[in-house]
Computed example of a mutant assay.
Amino acid sequence: MGGMYFLDQPDVMAPFVAGNRSRAFGAGLDPFAYERVTDGLRSLHDWPAAFRAAGARLVAAADEYAAQGRTVSAGEALRGAARWLHFSTLLPHPDATAMAGAARAADEAMGRALALTEPSAVRVEGASFAGWLRHPVRLEAPVAPLGPVPVVVVVPGTDSAKEEFHAVADALLARGVAVCAIDGPGQGVMAARQGPRADYQHVVGEVLDAVAGRPGVDVERAGVLGLSLGGYYASVSAAYEPRVRAAVAVSGPYRLDWDGLPPFVTDTLTRRCGGREAAREFAGRVDLTGTASRIDCPLLVVEGGTDDTPGVADGTALAAAAPNATLLCVPHGDHLLGNSRPDWLARTADWLAARLLTTP
């Protein structure tokens, strides 16, 4: 494939660190720790090891807490470790073995965290995905819903993984729906197994098939919430998977123009797809122009007003084309709206839960 096109760009480190700052904060990384870790970088080549080291320190702290019987502290440290380990994989780095190892370590840390603090969580896997099914805490009657509750599939984006969106999952769980946060093709622990696919409705269908029949979950009232490229995945799933009753696309593309995309995106897709031509073909299929009109379930499109990535037609076109869509635009929001979480997350979780819990 050639050299590291993005990493070899001159003067690339400072913009990358700055550009991922709000994303890191929105995902739950401590802002002061982020500054300490990134201040110590000499180049972006150092990013993966520095973030892995931060995750390893939290794993060591969790081991110490667990040995002392401090289960809550151990679980919190492991959740934090999962986030840091995931963030070590963001770059289009040539060491695929190290990237795959970090993704596995993030997955294992999150699994250990859930085993300590949320033992009702269930590992769910299929040919094209791996994730965790989590159940909402049942409130005292008469507030508690009776019978099975709807499930929301939370879908990450191009370089994301299920460990990045703890806040999204927690917000939905708090509102009485189950959550299945996954890695699909080209994402997280699945990235080493298969490249991304544009027909993501088959992945969501496989998730719902795997969850069907599990106690307390109603897959016939399913929702899907996708972030960044996951917003496209959520939209195409809403168009073609009949069990999806409501969907949310956060910072998702309406379509991609390969020739206009920035080097970080093209290099990331090239590595995750296994080659430049495969990546170009995949990008060409990320296009909702002929699909948006098929999305007849309620769709919430969440956009940041300052999110302007070259080569990406944003979700405002989707909101205009889908027949039952609502646009929520935060004027000062950036990509993934990590700089404005109070302006969209609660509103979005309320919107999605209300539509699923009131669906017959």
Rank of each mutant, 00 (worst) to 15 (best):
L29T: 05
D30E: 09
P31A: 10
P31T: 07
F32T: 09
A33I: 09
E35Y: 02
R36N: 02
V37Q: 01
S43F: 02
W47I: 10
P48Q: 09
P48E: 10
A49S: 13
A49K: 11
A50N: 00
F51I: 01
L58A: 03
V59T: 09
A60T: 14
A60E: 15
A62W: 11
E64W: 13
Y65T: 04
A66K: 14
A66F: 09
G69Q: 04
R70S: 10
R70N: 15
T71C: 05
S73D: 15
G75N: 03
L78H: 07
A81W: 01
A82G: 15
A82W: 00
H86Y: 10
T89R: 00
L91M: 07
P92F: 06
R104P: 01
M110V: 11
M110A: 11
R112P: 11
A113K: 03
L116D: 01
L116Q: 05
E118P: 00
E118D: 15
P119H: 00
P119T: 02
A121L: 07
V124K: 05
V124Q: 11
E125L: 07
G126F: 01
A130V: 14
A130R: 14
A130N: 06
W132P: 08
L133R: 12
V137Y: 05
A141S: 13
A141D: 13
V143D: 15
L146V: 14
P148G: 06
P150F: 04
V154S: 11
P156Y: 06
